[in-house]
């Protein structure tokens, strides 16, 4: 879980989203529809974007889960996060964690995506505020900037990302995803 080992016994019917929010207090991951249609709860499971409302917590057993709380590292925002801020890709912010995780999944799979690949990867995440233009631009900028490691804006306090991000080191090798969209 964001590079840390988490051990828990969960009911078989508990979704990964309920587990993240209810058990681990990782409430950065949002519920927008609960049935896999909006992408607000997108996290990475073994490097691949999934909607956490459609994945059972037990399915993540032994896997690597990355959430928005693990995106900033060592107190510094990632290039993706900075690009979202500077492009004006955020309004109400409710879709933002899922958007960033979908973009992270894309950039893991395709470090230099084409515009079509960016649109394809982001089209499963709904946003009602921004009209998407700035979000797509942010992903483009982040893809170009990815060679530059985390520089610049500091996150306020190491714990800003919640319990999962403390000392966050992304661990196990990533399995490339198969699809650009949501799992």
């Amino acid at each position: 879980m964001n590079g840390r080992l988490e051990t828990a016994t969960v009911p078989a019917g508990m979704t990964l989203l309920e587990f993240l929010r209810g058990r681990l207090c990782l409430v950065g991951t949002k519920e927008g529809c609960g049935i896999g249609e909006c992408g607000a709860c997108t996290v990475l499971l073994d490097g691949k974007p999934v909607t956490a409302c459609l994945v059972l917590a037990v399915e993540a057993d032994g896997g690597a889960v990355d959430t928005i709380e693990g995106e900033a590292r060592d107190g510094e925002l990632s290039a993706l996060q900075k690009a979202f801020i500077e492009a004006g890709a955020i309004q109400c912010g409710f879709c933002t964690p899922g958007m960033i995780m979908s973009a992270r999944g894309l950039l893991r799979r395709i470090p230099n995506p084409t515009d079509d690949e960016i649109v394809e990867a982001m089209a499963g995440n709904l946003c009602r505020c921004t009209g998407y233009e700035a979000i797509l631009e942010a992903v483009r900028v982040a893809a170009q900037a990815k060679a530059v490691p985390h520089a610049g804006q500091m996150v306020a306090g190491q714990s800003a990302g919640g319990s999962g991000s403390q000392g966050g080191r992304l661990s196990s090798p990533r399995v490339p995803g198969e699809g650009g969209g949501r799992g």
Partner: peptide, 12 residues
């Protein structure tokens, strides 16, 4: 840029 943007991109 928005002052709240840092909280929104980190899930805070």
């Amino acid at each position: 840029p928005r002052e709240d943007a840092v909280d929104k991109v980190t899930g805070a």
